[in-house]
Write a protein that binds this DNA or RNA. Structure first.
Length: 166
DNA sequence: CTTTCGATGATCT
DNA sequence: GATCATCGAAAGG
């Protein structure tokens, strides 16, 4: 799909799934104040601060109360590229949104998007016109449940945060 | 190309 | 007090 926030964004090329029954997930230990959005209704955003400095964007999936989400890890920039460059201080197109922290900075994601619906402004979502070729592999940067192949990417994309293992 | 390491702060134990 | 769904610069091959 294409994701825009205030008109800035592109085609999502990499995601990861997280579920409350699996220890790598923020929802694994149950609902708390900071992860409450993850236990809310689907179609809303869950935003968290990673390593003290990177804002990362998730979409809540499954029914309210379950605690499942998808981390948006990378996208191919198509709209608002000048603004992304400005926010990132970085001209190389490949490095604008290739990683959850970079994407968050380029799209100006912050806590005030936490819990917001993603089908109304400032979000704008558009479905792909054709069925894409998707690859999967282990998730990145986690220490638990490392065997779940729950990282998904657009095959052959140059905008992935990292290549997928063979 | 690869690996290492510091920045930085919320959250949970 | 430890951990962490990360990034970028620096150092080494």
């Amino acid at each position: 799909m294409t994701l825009l926030i205030d008109g800035v964004g592109g085609v999502i090329v990499e995601t990861e799934a997280y579920d409350s029954e699996e220890p790598a997930s923020h929802s694994y230990r149950g609902q708390t104040l900071h992860n409450a959005a993850l236990f809310g209704p689907p179609g809303h955003a869950y935003v968290y601060l990673s390593y003290g400095l990177h804002w990362c964007l998730n979409f809540v999936c499954r029914e309210a109360g379950h605690g499942a989400g998808v981390l948006i890890r990378a996208l191919e920039p198509t709209a608002g590229i000048a603004q992304m460059i400005d926010r990132r201080g970085q001209r190389e197109p490949r490095l604008l949104c290739s990683g959850p922290g970079r994407l968050g900075q380029a799209l100006a994601v912050t806590r005030d998007l936490n819990g917001r619906r993603i089908d109304v402004p400032p979000f704008k979502m558009a479905a792909a016109t054709a069925a894409p070729d998707i690859v999967c592999g282990p998730r990145i940067g986690i220490s638990k449940a490392v065997d779940h192949p729950w990282r998904f990417g657009l095959a052959g994309s140059r905008f992935l945060s990292r290549p997928f293992p063979k």
